[in-house]
Design a protein around this nucleic acid. Sequence first.
DNA 1: ACAGGAAATTGCTTTTTGCAAGCAAGTGAC
DNA 2: GTCACTTGCTTGCAAAAAGCAATTTCCTGT
Lengths: 134, 134
Amino acid sequence: MADNFPHRSHCPINYALESFGDKWTLLIIRDLMFNDKESYGDFLASGEKISTNILADRLKRLEELGIVTKGVKESNRSRVVYSLTQKGRDLLPIMLEITRWSGKYDANTYASRSFLARLEQDRDKLIAAIRAGW
Amino acid sequence: MADNFPHRSHCPINYALESFGDKWTLLIIRDLMFNDKESYGDFLASGEKISTNILADRLKRLEELGIVTKGVKESNRSRVVYSLTQKGRDLLPIMLEITRWSGKYDANTYASRSFLARLEQDRDKLIAAIRAGW
DNA sequence: ACAGGAAATTGCTTTTTGCAAGCAAGTGAC
DNA sequence: GTCACTTGCTTGCAAAAAGCAATTTCCTGT
C-alpha cells in the first residue's frame, strides 16, 4: 500500500480519481466484484478488450494502492489469482451508484431491470446481501 | 446530448467510464455541485490546476453528454456560465459515496469530520438536504 | 473607438495508450 | 527428462492524449 506519489490535492474526489480515475481500472474491479474473475487471463477476456501492458500496469497499481492482492491458487500454484482487499470491497456502494446512474441514462444498458429495481427499492439490503457473500 | 460514438460495451460501469472516466471531468462536476463555481475561470482556479485546453475539451464533452449546460449570465451577457442538468445532478450519490470512501482511506483528506459523520449516519437525509437546495 | 477581461484556440513537447510480437516460468503428457 | 502448452507478463513502436505557454477572439462597459 505505497501511495507515496505527489498528490494534486487531498480533495476526496481527487483522491479517488488518482486511485481509479482512468478508463480501465474500474473494469478490473467490476470483474473481481461481480463477475467472479480472478486471473490475468480472465480480465483479458472481458468485453472491452484491455491490452496486456495496460492490464499488467493497472494490476500492479491496484496492488500498490492496497485495493487488490495477488496470490496463487492452492490447487495449482502456478496460477496467479487476484482478489479485492477490504479497501477494494468498500468500493461496492460507488459501483452500485454508478450502475444506478448508467441504468437510468443508458437506454441500452446491460444492467437488468430486476437488478436496477432492487437497487432502487432497497439499496441497503442489496449491499448487505452482496457483502454477506464475501 | 450526442452520445453517438462507438461504445466499448453497454456495461453500466463502462458507460460511466466513457462519460467521466478520466482524471479531470469529475473535478469540474465537483466544482459545479459543491463549490458554487460556474465559469471557465472558476474551474481554472481550482487547486488541481487543469490546463485551458483540457478544460475547454471537457466542458464541451460534458455538454454533448447532457451533463452540463452552457448559458450566459443575465447580469453580464459576456460572461459564460455552466450548470448541471438533471443528469449531472443525479451524479450526487456517486459523488457522496466517493467522498465516503476517500474519507475512510485518505488519512489527509480534506473532507470534514462532520460532513463524513453526517454521510455515515444519514446518507439519505443528506442527499435530500442537498437536493432541496437546487 | 478603445481598454480590459473572460473564454477559448493554437503550437509544440512530453506522457500515456494501443497493438503486435516475444519471452519466461511452470505443468502435464509421454 | 523433455517437449509442447498455457499463463502471465515485457518490449518496441506508432498513435493519441495531456501539459504548458503564448496568442486570439469576443464581448462590454466607458
